[in-house]
């Protein structure tokens, strides 16, 4: 199945932060799926080490009728990670609510927190700002700055590249 016809040729170093931007249908999500190994390229190959990649999909789909706190705890166990309650407070996630009661923005924030659980070699965010209000967008960028300081590598795909230019090492415009 051909979604886009684009040739990619680049190398991602450990600890590097990359921003991918482009128009609708340019292939941002396809590139991310290629990096994740979710799809295979039609030609060429992707050489990647066996990495622990935390991934935030474009559309976060979580099971409804489960308490947010219970789900975070379950997810943390799977990732063998300790829960960063400060981060949860930082993103103002309503822990007592069930997932089906959350707004789109809150589900997105929950997805971000789930992706950030544990120690990953690489973080990949596909449209992380979708559904977030301006304050949360700023907080997210602020948190990325913190991650960059500690040498955490990440890839972001976004329609709002200007927000991330200050935190990334490389900008790929498709």
């Amino acid at each position: 199945m051909n979604y886009v016809d684009v040739t990619y040729d680049f190398k991602i170093e450990m600890g590097q932060s990359i921003l991918i931007s482009g128009e609708n249908g340019a292939g941002k999500s396809t590139l991310i799926r290629l990096i994740l190994g979710f799809i295979m390229p039609d030609e060429g190959k992707i050489i990647r080490k066996k990495l622990k990649i935390s991934y935030l999909p474009e559309h976060v789909l979580l099971p409804p009728f489960i308490k947010v706190k219970a789900y975070i705890e379950g997810f943390a166990k799977v990732k063998k990670a300790e829960i960063d309650w400060e981060l949860i407070d930082f993103f103002e996630i309503p822990l007592k609510k069930s997932i089906h009661q959350l707004s789109k923005g809150n589900i997105q924030k929950l997805g971000i927190v789930l992706a950030m659980l544990g120690s990953s070699d690489l973080l990949i965010f596909d449209e992380p700002l979708s559904g977030l209000d301006d304050m949360m967008k700023e907080r997210f960028v602020e948190h990325l700055k913190g991650l960059k300081k500690i040498g955490q590598g990440f890839i972001i795909s976004s329609h709002e590249p200007s927000r991330f230019l200050c935190v990334v090492d490389k900008h790929i415009n498709l």
């Binding site: 622990k52 935390s54 991934y55 935030l56 789909l61 990732k79 789930l114 544990g118």
Partner: peptide, 12 residues
């Protein structure tokens, strides 16, 4: 085949 599992598939 739930999409929510993709987040774990990429990690593990």
């Amino acid at each position: 085949d739930q999409k929510a599992f993709h987040m774990i598939e990429s990690y593990h």
